[in-house]
């Protein structure tokens, strides 16, 4: 189960603005899904190591050689606001 405080905390961590109605629906839906997911919390996993990668690669390293990148124009072309070649962001509080 997941409560309103947790929903609000998680939404803030994820930077998602939810209105009250959305928050309510989210709480119910997440609780429903977690009920199913809780199955794995009951499993006996003693001594089982975690799997992060299914492939057994190691040491995939790149040579330290510069490659051509983007022009300033391409770098900025999809941006919402540009000031003198830089991306603009709103003020921080």
């Amino acid at each position: 189960m997941i409560d309103d405080t947790t929903v609000r905390h998680v939404a803030r961590l994820a930077r998602l603005r939810l209105d009250d109605a959305e928050e309510q629906v989210m709480r119910e839906e997440l609780s429903g899904i977690l009920e199913h997911i809780d199955a794995i919390r009951a499993m006996d996993l003693d001594g089982v190591p975690p799997t992060t990668h299914v492939i057994e690669l190691e040491n995939v390293l790149r040579a330290d050689e510069p490659r051509p990148g983007l022009s300033q124009e391409d770098a900025l072309r999809e941006a919402r606001a540009v000031v003198d070649g830089s991306f603009e962001v709103p003020r921080m509080d």
Binding site: R12, R15, L16, R17, E78, A79, R80, F87, V89, P90, R91, M92, D93
Partner: peptide, 19 residues
């Protein structure tokens, strides 16, 4: 987050920009 690409909310502070 609407800063480097993609549409963006009209926000006048950073938290709103994100959220």
């Amino acid at each position: 987050d609407g800063i480097r690409y993609g549409p963006s909310a009209e926000a006048d502070n950073l938290l709103d920009q994100y959220e």
